[in-house]
Design a protein around this nucleic acid. Structure first.
Length: 563
RNA sequence: UGACCCAUGGUGUAAUGGCAACACAAAGGUUUUUGGUACCUUCGUUCUAGGUUCGAGUCCUAGUGGGUCAACCA
């Protein structure tokens, strides 16, 4: 008998957990809680799947149960092992483990076939020779009842022969289907004699050409749940109308009574989760692939640099309910920043460089400075950064005629160079276009970081990179993929109309300190004062590529935007 | 002109008939060798109208608004 663990008693519960606990307390769950994650291997997993994964695995963990991975592979026309492998990789990366419970609906084809025969024998299923159009017409509309098929009253014997014939390949694709005999006048369209088996000569990614008939979702999903003795089958709200059929089939087949509970799927502003539309972005060349860092896919977010823990925190904070929702993408980014702030080493990288020369610093002198990697660490480590007379600083960190609240460099202004000295600007040079070509400063030699005796006050601190020691890197700055929070929410507009043409800005020659060479793919780092970045898989030893994961909060930029 | 589901700050989720709470966002402030982080402050007629009750965000009724349902897809 399943029990509710004592240590979770004080924790808040969502409505699914409440239902589940009621079942347990009513003695309806004679074994540990068992859930499943049932993806169809016809595309890559996205942020919405991440929520379903966290929910299913999370709830089982919380109540001391287990979760199966089950591929819902009943439509061979669209499914492929490529997707199976990608899905498994993504779930593991997210941090969940199905152990040895990797199942496939296709493993149950024989059993499902026998279930169908049982239904026929009970007089609860019949072979229908009607065309798809005819069947659609028989079903009526949501406001008008359906009418019975002319084939509805075939004898059990005839239905058996016909269905066995279907399985043996005697009939053409689409010529006949097996239908459950339920109620053509039900107000629920799904109860109006749903098709449960169709003839389809397609090579299946696992069963090859063994079968030419395949079960429909309604005759595969619930039955698979039952075969695996899934106690609670959690799915999204649009399956609400399938539940009476789900229960009807379990009852008539006299199999394990799994319980379906529906929750609202998550919508995130500026993201889409339709596999078809995600695929179109790829086909139209708007993104490079399923794992393009702008994609809402798990693989895309991984490549973007979102840590798996952040994704899990996000799914947790979003919660579970039944109402329509549109999550602010800022919540996702807040989770990413919270995690990365704790774990990322800081590095200095100048994205839009201008030259800065320290006039009173010895011309060929270099210094090895020690700079803290991550100030959030309890016992922070340090790295070596090279300092010299000629540096790069950020173009935006200098203004010819700065306003009072600008805490960076300008003629006569002093700033600290992070981990180094305080400098004061004496003069600047312009190029032929009137752009800043070079900033010339003096430094205070007694202001060295950690042993500053200068007494000079500097309001701002800048990041910098020594010109002679700089490493050129390519930086890909990503922004949201769409210009509208609900790009696919308009009936009269195609979602691609909202494609953000500025969703990718490439900087080919950013200037980075030496330590950038030690960065690894998958490990987030902070480019100090700029944002969190991660090394991209396109990198080679000679050519480093970094993806911007998310920017830092920028209260200066915000202040300017308001003016 | 049907059935079913839903309705709490800008957003998302709590409050299980008894002081509307937490997070994100926004705004203001303190600290800071990242204009980051951290910390503090501010931001609600619980969709409407009736009813039950000593007491309703919560229960009941009606309305309003939103969502879902008519693939040989899942």
């Amino acid at each position: 008998m399943s029990k509710i663990p004592k240590d979770i008693l004080g924790e808040p519960r969502n409505f699914i957990e409440e239902e589940l606990e009621k079942d347990v307390q009513a003695g309806k769950v004679p074994k540990p809680i068992h859930t499943r994650f049932p993806p169809e291997p016809n595309g890559y997993l996205h942020i919405g799947h991440a929520k379903a994964i966290c929910l299913n695995f999370g709830i089982a963990q919380k109540y001391g149960g287990k979760t199966n991975l089950r591929f819902d592979d009943t439509n061979p026309a669209t499914e492929d092992t490529e997707f199976v492998d990608a899905i498994k990789f993504d779930i593991k990366w997210l941090g969940f483990d199905w152990e040895d419970r990797e199942y496939y609906a296709s493993d149950y084809f024989k059993q499902l076939y026998e279930f169908a025969l049982k239904l026929i024998d009970k007089g609860l299923a019949y072979v229908d020779d009607s065309s798809p159009d005819e069947i659609a017409n028989q079903k009526g509309t949501p406001t008008e009842p359906g009418v019975n098929s002319p084939y509805r009253e075939r004898s059990i014997l005839e239905n058996r022969d016909l269905f066995i014939g279907m399985k043996e390949g005697k009939y053409n694709d689409g010529s006949r289907v097996l239908r459950a005999k339920v109620d053509m006048s039900s107000p629920n369209m799904h109860m109006r004699d749903p098709v449960i088996y169709r003839i389809k000569r397609e090579t299946h990614h696992r069963t090859g050409d063994d079968w030419c008939i395949y079960p429909m979702y309604d005759f595969a999903h619930g039955q698979s749940d039952s075969i695996e003795e899934i106690t609670h089958s959690l799915c999204s709200l649009e399956f609400r109308h399938h539940r009476p059929l789900y229960n009807w089939l379990i009852e008539e087949l006299e199999i394990y009574p799994s319980r379906q509970i529906e929750f609202a799927r998550m919508n995130v502003a500026y993201m889409i989760t339709s596999k078809r539309k995600l695929l179109r972005l790829i086909q139209d060349g708007k993104v490079t692939a399923w794992d393009d860092p702008r994609m809402s896919t798990i693989s895309g977010m991984r490549r973007r640099g979102y840590p798996p823990t952040a994704l899990r925190t996000f799914c947790d904070k979003v919660g579970i309910a039944k109402r329509e929702n549109l999550i602010d993408i800022a919540l996702l980014e807040a989770c990413v920043k919270e995690e990365l702030n704790k774990t990322s080493d800081r590095l200095m990288v100048v994205l839009d460089p201008i030259k800065l020369t320290i006039a009173n610093y010895p011309e060929h002198q270099t210094e090895e400075l020690m700079v803290v990697n991550n100030p959030e660490d309890e016992s922070p480590t340090e790295r070596l950064v090279m300092f010299s007379q000629t540096l790069f600083i950020e173009r935006a960190d200098f203004m010819i005629d700065p306003p009072k609240k600008f805490f960076r460099l300008g003629p006569g202004r002093a700033v600290r160079l992070k981990g180094a000295y305080i400098i004061e600007c004496i003069v600047y040079k312009l190029d032929e276009n009137g752009e800043i070509a070079e900033v010339i400063c003096n430094y205070f030699d007694n202001s060295k970081s950690g042993s500053d005796t200068s007494g000079v006050k500097a309001k701002g601190t800048l990041h910098w990179v020594s010109q002679d020691h700089a490493v050129d890197v390519e930086v890909r700055q990503y922004d949201r993929l769409f210009t509208d929070p609900t790009p696919d929410g308009y009936e009269d507009k195609d979602f691609l109309e909202f494609y953000n043409e500025n969703s990718l800005e490439v900087i080919t020659e950013a200037k980075a300190e030496q330590a950038i060479k030690t960065c690894e793919v998958g490990t987030g780092i902070q480019f100090m004062r700029k944002g969190y970045f991660v090394k991209d898989i396109d990198s080679t030893n000679e050519h480093l590529v970094f993806n911007r994961t998310v920017t830092l909060r920028d209260s200066w930029k915000k202040l300017q935007a308001r003016k």
